[in-house]
Nucleic acid binder design. Sequence first.
DNA 1: TTGTAGGCGTTATCAG
DNA 2: CTGATAACGCCTACAA
Lengths: 335, 335
Amino acid sequence: MPDGPTITTIAEHAGVSIASVSRVLNGLPTRPETERKVMRAADELGYVRNAVARSLKSRRTHQIAFAMADIGNPVYLAMVRQIQPVLKTAGYRLVLHSTDAVVADEIDVLRSLGERYVDGLIMSPIRVTDDHLKMIENARAPVVIIGLVPDGTAVDNVRADSREGVRLAVGHLHERGRRRIGFLNGPLDTVPGAARDAAFREALEECGLPYDPALVEVGDFYREAGAQAARRLLERDGDVDALMCANDLIALGALDVLRQYGKRVPQDVAVVGMDDTDLAAASWPTLTSVSLGSAERGRAAAQLLLARLEDGGRAPTVVTVPPRLIVRESTLETS
Amino acid sequence: MPDGPTITTIAEHAGVSIASVSRVLNGLPTRPETERKVMRAADELGYVRNAVARSLKSRRTHQIAFAMADIGNPVYLAMVRQIQPVLKTAGYRLVLHSTDAVVADEIDVLRSLGERYVDGLIMSPIRVTDDHLKMIENARAPVVIIGLVPDGTAVDNVRADSREGVRLAVGHLHERGRRRIGFLNGPLDTVPGAARDAAFREALEECGLPYDPALVEVGDFYREAGAQAARRLLERDGDVDALMCANDLIALGALDVLRQYGKRVPQDVAVVGMDDTDLAAASWPTLTSVSLGSAERGRAAAQLLLARLEDGGRAPTVVTVPPRLIVRESTLETS
DNA sequence: TTGTAGGCGTTATCAG
DNA sequence: CTGATAACGCCTACAA
């Protein structure tokens, strides 16, 4: 692992000044002769530009970070798949951070922004604390938040409308004749968890259905947690005829458990997920799911970030992506 | 977005020299009085250390990259989950790169090593070209490769034994009385694809079964590709009684298709996957799979990297993780 | 067109 | 214990 050559090394080998080397390397006008000498030396020495030194001067790293709560959730996958090409086209490299929904880690990523390792950050925090908000607003580089932040927070923000999403789903179940609709949610101290809880109550009311706490289970946004929640619910109440799940992973866990209990889906119990991840289309039965537009949100976030990178002065923008209900087998008509 | 204060700013505010500021910030012995002044100024100004400048000097970034071929493959997830804590404990932050198995992107990540943005790299390339090997051996920072590289390559290397893995799986199917064993593989120009192809032929021979090209399909390592491959195979030959799949995603795709064709698993067709990802345990029926020890491989890779970071001189190490067959419903005895 | 020199923010060495 | 000061590798006026 030889210590790399620097422009100084090259300058010596080529018999020119470091300034000339730098110019050649950056494609500035140079005499062909000089250029050739420099390029040859650089090649022979296997020169690689030290990006750290370069960004110390230029204050640009050409890197952008995407901090996701759970790398195992395909919803973030869908986002990455959109963000990646947008940024790449604009000349940025995407680096990914998995925070495992640990607030401390998210804060750490935010701080690392101040450390100048990246030019900007897209972040999808699952819990938003005051610390978050403070750091976000004071961040030294552009930040885009995917998810709900309090109105008036001075930050570019891409939102899903999970409230409308839940309404769509519950309305759909109601139309299909379901009346005992269970709800498997994630933690209430998370932003999506809280939003979906409120939305569920509202949606029931709109359908004229009572809110029955016995039909609600709170767990976590993972498949196994979804399975456990479903199990608890079924043990307590064998009569649910539908399950509204706060995301697809929970729904998949629920499907597993329903199968174990010998419940047919959708005949005995209809199931709806949220996020419309790839897994929804691939499960068995295929899963009806509310798309919260993760792909669109990813793309929008990337674009917002690029826009701000261009013009730091523009007013914070909020983009809201509308939900769509994707009906699949798990809620099919069963006449 | 105010431009951040530097140690110079702090020094002025605190009325001390920048050297003292640096010392305090790095916890070097300082007079309490000075320390207090500095800390107060730093606090008030909201100082964040400029990591870029710091690493220009220290030649350390405290960041390590993990470049994976496909962020959507849970096998990498399992690795990340192991790598993350090991590195974190040692004071490194893990940054993830998804190369989508594009060779150019992998080379780019390798080059970025020379750019000094990270102190080391763990990489799981799916295709290994000469360019790769050259760059790896000449890399300016430690690299650990997860996957097969040619013997004698001077690099720390963690391997799975997919050959033995395929043997286990095919042997298992043979024992269960299966005689027309189909094989759904990934691209043959990939390292795992080639290895598994060779292993499959060998394994058949060992069982005294003939190699029948009509029972072999080559696609890609994704679920949808697996489904397509299975479909092609079934259209051509309705009599297979087992499917050996080169990874779990392919196997899941195959399960989808078998269901569509009305084939019962395992009664009509037994299915084996590889990698033993979470999805294998969660599919329906649950999927027998060959664990190639992805978790262990991840951990080993992280440890190897740390070891080399400590001592750049040690000889390249090769760790091989043995496979294990995890039998689940998809190959259950059906007597 | 080319070279010299200063600075980006830190750390580390060396006198005081 | 503290304060100048010289790097780290690169970019960029400015001068030649």
